[in-house]
Design a protein around this nucleic acid. Structure first.
Lengths: 167, 167
DNA sequence: GGTCCTTATATAGGAGCATGATACAAATGT
DNA sequence: ACATTTGTATCATGCTCCTATATAAGGACC
């Protein structure tokens, strides 16, 4: 599943390239966290809500595993989200131990608002650039998206599979 | 300093582009927080250390303002960092009220380690991609870097200047 | 049916990181 | 001298994470 450097097309200095890409991605990530982050709920909270929105009602333990936090943390998080009316808990009729967590309409609305906020702030930032720069960024993003999608996918798999240098 | 959309070259649907870019940045932030984050110190702590490294000894209040947290938060943060030996406090001879915070060698070493860790993990991730995908990412990054640098600069200015929708 | 193990969730206690309100000392303006 | 502003610290509170432990339901086995 891992590609070696020798198969790179034409004399591209791959290690320098990775440095470059790593550097750029790092800066991008910093920007994203710095300027595109809402302070209203935590990262894990938002991510959990998003997951509940995409995948439907889930068990506490499954959520904790997926989000990479401990089960007690998820219990507390869900309690807070429930207090805020963003999720509800339903007992599983088939198993008296489990609690199914589901997103509410208010939760979906919060997700939508956060999304709008991020897009708006990004629009403000992009508006400070020249049309040429905007065009350059747009082109680059379009070109990079497929590869980047796969990168994110692989990162997700690395989390769950053993044997990798998971931090 | 702001450009309007009418001057964009050829029929680029700017709003759709922004959606795309926003989507990409969102995923990037997710990747960064999920897979590139060290758990040793917080984001604000790391960012503050980086600032101290770049800009030299600074006042508590200045740090708080630059990092976008309140002064009490910064006081606590500096106390923790001091306990960990990453920064030191020096009294300002010119003003008996101020405390100058400076990074220590241990602090610099921590920054370097964190940087190495992130780069290594990114390299691991990049290595899971096909040579074609790696090439695509590298090309996109090179094409986007100049515009992106300006974007980051503008974002930094926007934080300090009033009149914008600061989060 | 009772004992044992596993699974699912909750609780308790502790640390980090943020907040607003407030205290206090040093500097500054009148 | 006195009032005000400025720079830090402290306090009380809340969110978010952790580890360790408790409770309770489900299943296996004798």
């Amino acid at each position: 599943m891992e590609y070696t450097q020798q198969s790179v097309p034409r004399g591209t200095d791959t290690s320098a390239t990775r440095e470059e890409v790593a550097e750029a991605l790092e800066q991008l990530a910093f920007l994203a966290v710095r300027h595109l982050t809402n302070r209203d709920i935590s990262f894990t909270a938002a991510s959990t809500l998003g997951r509940l929105s995409r995948e439907g009602p889930s068990r506490l333990t499954a959520l904790a595993a997926d989000e990479g936090v401990t089960q007690p943390s998820m219990t507390q998080l869900i309690q807070r989200l429930e207090r805020q009316g963003l999720v509800t808990r339903v007992d599983d009729p088939h198993d008296g131990r489990v609690v199914l967590v589901a997103i509410t309409d208010a939760g979906r609305e919060l997700l939508a608002e956060r999304r709008r906020g991020r897009t708006d702030r990004l629009a403000e930032l992009l508006a400070t650039l020249s049309p040429e720069d905007q065009e350059a960024l747009a082109t680059a993003v379009r070109a990079a998206t497929p590869a980047f999608q796969r990168l994110v996918e692989n990162a997700g798999r690395a989390r769950k599979a053993p044997g990798s240098t998971a931090s």
